[in-house]
Design a protein around this nucleic acid. Sequence first.
DNA 1: CCTCAGCCTTAACCTATGGAAATGCCGGAA
DNA 2: TTCCGGCATTTCCATAGGTTAAGGCTGAGG
Lengths: 248, 248
Amino acid sequence: MPVSTLDRSVTEPIIRRLNALRTLSAQASASLEHAVLEGMQRAGSGEDLISEGDPVDSVRIVLSGWLCRYKTLEDGRRQIVNFIFPGETCDAHAFLLAVMDHSIATLTPVVYSEIKRARFETLVASDRSLAEAFWCETLVNSAIQREWAINLGRRVALERVAHLFCEIFERLRPVGMIDGNSCIMPVTQMDLADATGLSVVHLNRTVQELRAAGLIVLRERTLTINDLDALKDAALFSPSYLQLYRRK
Amino acid sequence: MPVSTLDRSVTEPIIRRLNALRTLSAQASASLEHAVLEGMQRAGSGEDLISEGDPVDSVRIVLSGWLCRYKTLEDGRRQIVNFIFPGETCDAHAFLLAVMDHSIATLTPVVYSEIKRARFETLVASDRSLAEAFWCETLVNSAIQREWAINLGRRVALERVAHLFCEIFERLRPVGMIDGNSCIMPVTQMDLADATGLSVVHLNRTVQELRAAGLIVLRERTLTINDLDALKDAALFSPSYLQLYRRK
DNA sequence: CCTCAGCCTTAACCTATGGAAATGCCGGAA
DNA sequence: TTCCGGCATTTCCATAGGTTAAGGCTGAGG
C-alpha cells in the first residue's frame, strides 16, 4: 500500500515533532511513517491506555487527541504529571523497565499508532538520527517533568495556571495545533486542577482571575491568549526547558 | 595501572547501582571501572557542578557525597527537583540536548568521575547491557520525577516529608549506605524545605510532628527511622517507581 | 418536552501553610 | 576566651487555598 496524501497528513505531527529534535533523512521519515501506519488504533475519551503496574511491550505514538500521564494515591487523590500531545510518544523505551510507574489516559478521542517493541527496536536501529530523536523526546519529557516540579512546589496558583497555559500553547505550536492566539482546550477544569495540584474550586477562582486580568479567554473548549508576553510574565515562564531550538 | 583493591571500593557504588538495573559482564564492569578511574574529581560542599543554560559535553558519575538538581525562579524561589546519590549519574545523555534545563549542586563534599562524551559513547557502544543500564538510570530518574510531582501536588506536608525520607532511605539502601534503620542526612532543613516545596518554618514544624509521633529521630545529621512500615503508611509510600526489582 | 448527568460557578467557612522576626545552640576563627 | 555565622526552633500573625454545598447551564437521551 503506497503512502497516500491522506496518510501523510496523519503522520505529520510525529514527523514534525521528531524533526524538531533531529533532522530526519527522507529514508528515516519514510520507514517511520511506514511503521506508524501499520499500527493505527483509536481510543475514545476517558480510557486508560495503560495503567500503573502494567508491563510494557510496545510504543504508542499519538497522532491526534490529548492524553495525560497520571498517578493516584490510595484515597483517590489524583495528580496529572504530564500531558501528551499529537506527535508525542507515550512510552518510548519504557519497555526497558519492568512495569509502568504511572497510568496514561485519553482526555479526548485519540488516534495513535502502537508499535511492538521488536519492531520499534529494528526501526531505531536502522537510523541513528531517528534513534536520537526518540531519546531526545524522552529527555525533553524529563525536563518538562522537572519544570512541573518547580511549578507545583514553588509557584502560587495564578502563576501555576498561567504557566500551564503557556506550556500547552508552546507545545502545541510546533505541531501546528494553534490558530493565531488560540488553541483548543478540550479538558475539564477538574483535569486542569489535577495538573496544577489545586482543588477544582480554586482552579476555577484562578481562571476567573486570569480572565479578569484580561490575560485569557477560556470558553467553549477554546483558550485564547490575549497577550502571550503578559501571560508569560505572570507565569514566570521561560520556554528553554522545552528545547524548541535545536543544538547546532 | 592495575585496578587496586582501593579503587574497587571507590567504584563500588556505580557498579552496584548499574548491576541493580542490568547484569553487567565482568568485561563491562572492568571497562566501566577503567573509564571512571580516569576522570576522578573532587568538589566541595555547596558548589554548582553545572548550571541551567550550560552546554553539556560530559557525563558525571557520583562516587561519594550527595548532590541535588534544582531550578530557581527569577525572584529566588528555589525548588530541588531531585537528589543525586552515590552510584548515580548526573547527566547521562544530557549532551543529546542543547543545554541544561536545570542546575546541579553539591550538598556535601563529593567525589565524582567526569567522562567526556566521546569516551562515554565509546564505552556504552562496547556493551549492550551497559548502555541499557545507563538508559535505565535515566528512565528511573524520570519515574522519580513523576513521583515528586504527585508528592508536591497532592500530598500534605506530613505525608510529603515522610515520603521524602522513605525515598531517600530506599535509594541509599541498594548502594549500601544505610546502617540498620539509620542513614546520614547531611542536608539542612532549608534543603529539605526546597525539596518538599515547603517553607523552612513549616518543614521544621512537620519534622517535629514526625518526631512527636515517634516515627523518626533526626539529629546530628543522622536520620533514624524507628518504624519504617509506619513511616511508609504515613507517607502513602510505595517503592515500585524506584524499580528496585529488575525485570526478569 | 422533560429529565438527568456533567460541568462550571459562587458562596461561606475553615485550616494548612507561609512570612517575619526573635531566640538559642554550636562550632570555627581569631 | 570571645565573636560570629549558620542552622534549628518557636512564636505570632496573615492568607492562600481547601472543603462543602448549592445553583445554574447545557447537551444527550427518552
